[in-house]
Write a protein that binds this DNA or RNA. Sequence first.
DNA 1: TTCCGAATAT
DNA 2: AATATTCGGA
Length: 482
Amino acid sequence: MMDLCGFSSPRSDCFPAGLRVLVVDDDPTWLKILEKMLKKCNYEVTTCNLAREALDLLRERKDRFDIVISDVNMPDMDGFKLLEQVGLEMDLPVIMMSVDGETRRVMKGVQHGACDYLLKPIRMKELRNIWQHVLRKRIHEVRDIEVEEIYTMRNVTEQQSDDGKKKRKDTSANKNDDSSSSKKSRVVWTVDLHQKFVKAVNQIGLDKVGPKKVLDLMGVTWLTRENVASHLQKYRLYLSRLQMENELKATLGGIKSSNIYSKDHSSTNVCLQNPLSQTSITMQQKIVTNESYKNLNQKDDSKICEENMNGIISGPTKTKKALLGDVKDPMKSNTSRLSFGHSLPKIEVQSWQEEKSHFQADKPRVASIEPSYGNTKSQGIERVTKVESTAALFSVQPQLTYRHAFEHNLFGDVAGPSYRLWEDELNCFPSQGFSDPPYADYGYHGSQELIADVPYHSLNFDSDYTSDSLEYPVIDQGLFIA
DNA sequence: TTCCGAATAT
DNA sequence: AATATTCGGA
């Protein structure tokens, strides 16, 4: 087992004690109460009644705190915003809290990366254990590094930073660290990241995009232009493919039936079903790429998107929030559903040991899964550091990928699905299944697993999660769909 | 020189 | 499949 004291946790000597907690709440009363309670836990407490202030504090010295506890409702800045910023900039575990336990909000919190969500009134017993999140994160970090080491053992030489180019400044937060020597971790384009990307692209305009501009706009320090370029390339491919499908559909007789690519694997084939489109598209792809890309440009793509979305999403396409809306739109295309009707595949938790050996064997870093959907040869879910591949369910299957993008989410490594904050889309959640989500009342309180032998375990969670056929929303990851 | 993007490599 | 790297050309 790991030597828990091994990782350079600041003050690892007496670990849980002295945990540096930043509490953010606009209500001074709560602030006081929390402070008191936290101090009773032997934590080192800093309070703050303004989110912005908190952010400043955090930015000032990002290594000054171990964990943040923040209220959700605050006048100066939405708690979620804060959460997001923190996740982005320093990657500290953040616990959210609020009085209401409204499912949506909790979910939103979790989706935004909260590692826990506490309901007020908060009691001691809920605070006593918050250090686990810090620990969990550390474990993850260590593991990530090990994994990377193993994974990239070979390409050691690497580019020596020859001249004084602007080197990425790398927030130690982002495990992008290339410390020690030789690791160039691959960028994982999480939904989150991709969102930023698309947002930037849209802002610039398809006609004027370039990796550089996008990179700048995205403001993700550790990304490189190459990263973006690569992604952009793929994105363009995606767009043109998208457009071609559109054209095809149009050609084939304006049947704008939404269900064309419906998931019914075996069902009576709809006249437009894939075989044709598939092939012809692939065949043409190369040729058309450029052209169509340009066309796409000229057509107002929001239109296109609308077309695509018609019927897939219930209700009219919302145009509010243009940016974000547009962002996801293209991805919405007929290639996916908003929700799908299978229960979440089962995740079998592996122990650290097992997993590790997996890596060493250079075996697929994939948890055992039980895909419940059709034809897929997909692996369904990954719960490990890198996402190697997403199921190639182009036409039909939505995918759930569990990415480490959610490192610090509530469930530790068995993260939530990687759908992400499509702000307005929470509507799309199949409400029935969620009346009693695991998030709300599940807690880590009292869980000992961390210090036990199976750090990555999510005991109860698992059963909770899988037992019922909760349906999960699928956010199209367009791009991630091959 | 820096940036692009297609092609190609991993 | 997803991302990185290369390389000829603006």
